[in-house]
Nucleic acid binder design. Structure first.
Lengths: 342, 342
DNA sequence: TCGCATCGCTAATCCGATTTAGCAAAGGGA
DNA sequence: TCCCTTTGCTAAATCGGATTAGCGATGCGA
């Protein structure tokens, strides 16, 4: 069925030259090493006719490079939140003729070590270490060229990081409300009102809060959720409504916002007529629920793409040790915010 | 910083044996080729001390195998629907000590060819060709060992396929309603009521309909959606409610069901009090919306896992040409179905 | 005509493993 | 004592390219 692959030796024979010459021509070093135009054309034509493609494994063995990078995550690879992250990385990689290995450590250091080894054994040119939600991670020793995606090194490791600009996102969310005239009656669901009221390890919660406070927006109160799931959004919003009558809600993500919608609906409050809602992430449901949710998007695609770009820049020595790249989080204005009445 | 990798030559020298002997011991063929127990232990100990790990690239060149498989999809890799598919494949691969390349063709045959070449150049042991939604695909020539995931070959190519058991799913959905006493007043949203009323190329729609009809459940009517998105579910359900008063709805997927929920809510109808709803996919939103949606799950994780298993079985010659593996779709009973009143 | 530089190409080595063929020493039988 | 096995290990070839060093032929100046 499928014949043996065409090797450099086959090509050389077909073109009537040595393997050296064939290799020189195919790697574009023909000119440099004085191969005549005539011979060069002969080799090129033969390569075309035979459909010659160099064996990447062999090239890898000889050159020590593999045009392959590894994408290792705790569990991001399979989370819908992050499909786009992989897509961004994939496209940036393809533009450079590079393939992507993926692996999931599931937060298990032992598994992570195994994955990194498996990748290093295959001579990957670099590694992207990704986290599902923005947090600090311990960087394994001897990892080689690598970047941290959606994560910061603990302790400082010299590796560059790519993270969403959560502080900017906090500012943007607050401004959406301020611009609509909401200067009071603003409550938070998921974290806040102070910097201490956050789920453990959540960089996003802290930085979003910082950004919000930077605008001077007064937060009337808030409810922490241990986990940012719809059910917690529902119960915490219920609890909030039992005591207060908010005019606007900042939800720490769209799933929490979905729960908040349900609680507001139960209470007979309409969005955005009675209560405006802004959120974070731009999860697909944000545009599925009614009214459509105004939210500050996590730039998954851009994060993935940036990770590959920084990885290559780093290998080219163009990145300062420990440099942190913050990717902007754009507002998606939709239907859940209305001007403050009265 | 990071010292040069330990090679077989280093190991051999440290153990005071030849490279041949070291290799023999490390590949477990020491006994077979009469290496003494004493020498074997010496090599093993040295390997442990030096932290020797064979260079996979070199092994690949010599043996022609790479312990790597490729996962090429049209766009599945980055769709939340399919994160679990990759996860299943990833875990099954890891159990076999195999790494996964991923790539997306975005439905572009040219891109697909490029990806397949890039993978073949890297000597992948096999390839999984995946589709985002179940459909028939044209199989590239000379693809080598491969399986089709969530897709059927067109024309017959001899490659094995792994697909969800959509017919069984249709039966299961219908039985859920029948068991609750719904023998009439059942309408469909997304496709139906006849086998001709389906979105183009949708294998899932046709097979789900077949399964439903097999149970003898009478379908009173249906509305086709060009695309199974919430907005279409909303508008088509609105249109249905303008003319009929359903007692139960079969939605062709959960996103459509979300739209149906919204339309029912608008019309002042409660789920499941007035109208029972069953659906397909078990998208995360199914358990986020209230009442929680009873749905027949797409077994993404199992599909991914099965693909790897079948790929290896095929390479071992244990699969018949063109064999189709149907993965069961389990019902997730939740809160959206109530017994038929009256 | 001789010597040297340039031109155009190739032989040989290397990357790091696996694998085949075979060698030297020890053991056993006649 | 001699020959034949068996034991225990290793030299060398191989995978498919990239790369270094260098060889023969030609051209040029003196």
């Amino acid at each position: 069925m499928s014949r043996r692959r065409v090797t450099l030796a086959d090509l050389a024979e077909a073109a009537g030259v040595s393997r050296t010459t064939a290799s020189l021509v195919m790697t574009g070093r023909g000119r440099e090493l004085r191969i005549s135009h005539d011979v060069e054309q002969r080799v090129l034509r033969a390569a075309d006719e035979l459909g010659y493609r160099p064996n990447a494994v062999s090239v890898g063995l000889r050159t020590g490079t593999s045009r392959t990078i590894g994408f290792v995550s705790d569990t991001v690879a399979t989370t819908h939140l992050a499909g786009d992250m992989i897509k961004g990385a994939l496209e940036a990689a393809r533009e450079r003729g590079v393939m992507l290995f993926i692996g999931e450590s599931e937060g298990d250091p032992e598994l992570e070590r195994g994955l990194l080894h498996a990748m290093q054994d295959r001579q990957v040119d670099g590694i992207i270490l990704a986290a599902m939600f923005t947090r600090t991670i311990e960087v394994p020793k001897d990892i080689g060229p690598a970047v941290l995606l959606n994560a910061l090194p603990r302790p400082a490791s010299g590796l560059p990081s790519i993270v969403p600009d959560e502080i900017g996102a906090g500012r943007a969310a607050a401004r959406v409300l301020l611009d609509a005239g909401h200067h009071d009656g603003v409550y938070m669901i998921g974290a806040g009102p102070t910097l201490n009221d956050v789920p453990p390890d959540s960089v996003a919660a802290v930085e979003r809060l910082i950004g919000i406070k930077e605008t001077g927006l007064q937060i009337a109160g808030g409810r922490v959720c241990v986990d940012w799931q719809p059910e917690h959004g529902l119960t915490e919003t219920r609890a909030l409504l039992a005591e207060h009558r908010p005019r606007a809600l900042i939800c720490l993500n769209d799933r929490v916002a979905l729960g908040a919608y349900q609680a507001l609906d139960e209470a007979g409050l309409s969005v955005p007529g009675d209560v405006s809602v802004v959120s974070f992430d731009d999860h697909p449901i944000a545009s599925w629920i009614r009214p459509k949710l105004t939210t500050v998007a996590l730039p998954h695609y851009d994060l993935g793409r940036k990770a590959v770009e920084v990885l290559f820049a780093q290998m080219a020595g163009e990145v300062e040790p420990g440099q942190v790249f913050r990717v902007p989080m754009p507002v998606r204005p939709r239907e859940s915010v209305a001007p403050r009445a009265g």
